Amino acid sequence: MPLFDYHCKACQAEFELLVRSSTVPTCPHCGSTDLEKCVSRIAPAGKIEAIRMAHRRAAHAQGHFNHYSPSDQAKLLKGKRV
């Protein structure tokens, strides 16, 4: 599941979402589907792992890893590959 940056045209919110190919992304603030996919900023060298883990923790907090087993969730949050 790729992580994308979006800009909501309805409420002007900017956010990131993990999106499956079969789902239509919606704004978590207003529920609109009128979104613009944004170009993600390039991570500075040496910061990529910390940024990736921060995104995983945020995705986990939003429930995006609920379909994984508890042991696989723990591995994802420790930075190990599942």
Rank of each mutant, 00 (worst) to 15 (best):
K37D: 02
D72A: 10
R52F: 10
V39Y: 09
S71D: 14
K75H: 11
A74E: 03
G63Y: 00
L35Q: 05
C38Y: 00
R41N: 14
L77P: 04
H67R: 02
I42K: 14
Y68V: 07
A74P: 00
S71E: 15
L76P: 06
A59C: 07
S40N: 12
I42N: 06
P70Q: 06
T33Q: 10
H60Q: 02
S69Q: 07
H64G: 03
R52L: 05
E49I: 13
A58T: 11
P44N: 04
A50T: 07
D34V: 08
R52G: 03
D72P: 00
L77E: 00
H55N: 12
L35R: 11
N66M: 00
G46F: 01
L76T: 02
E36D: 11
R41I: 09
K37Q: 12
I51M: 12
A59N: 11
K47F: 11
L77G: 03
A54R: 13
A43H: 11
A58G: 07
L35G: 01
H64D: 12
S69N: 01
A45N: 03
P44T: 10
Q73H: 00
P70D: 06
H64F: 04
A61V: 04
A59D: 10
H60L: 04
E36Q: 08
A43T: 15
Q62H: 11
Q73M: 03
H64E: 14
A59R: 13
L77H: 07
I51S: 07
A74F: 02
P70N: 02
A43P: 05
P70E: 01
H64A: 15
R56F: 09
I48M: 08
R57A: 11
G63H: 06
Y68T: 01
H67I: 05
G79F: 11
N66Q: 12
L76K: 09
A50I: 04
F65Q: 07
P70A: 12
I51D: 13
R56K: 15
H64C: 09
R81V: 01
N66I: 06
K80Y: 08
R52H: 13
Q73R: 09
T33K: 14
A43I: 13
N66W: 05
K37H: 03
Y68I: 06
E49R: 14
M53N: 10
H60A: 15
Q62W: 05
H64N: 09
G46D: 04
A45C: 08
E49W: 11
L76M: 12
A45L: 14
G63M: 03
R41C: 10
A61F: 01
L35D: 06
E49F: 12
D34G: 06
A45Y: 08
E49C: 05
K80I: 13
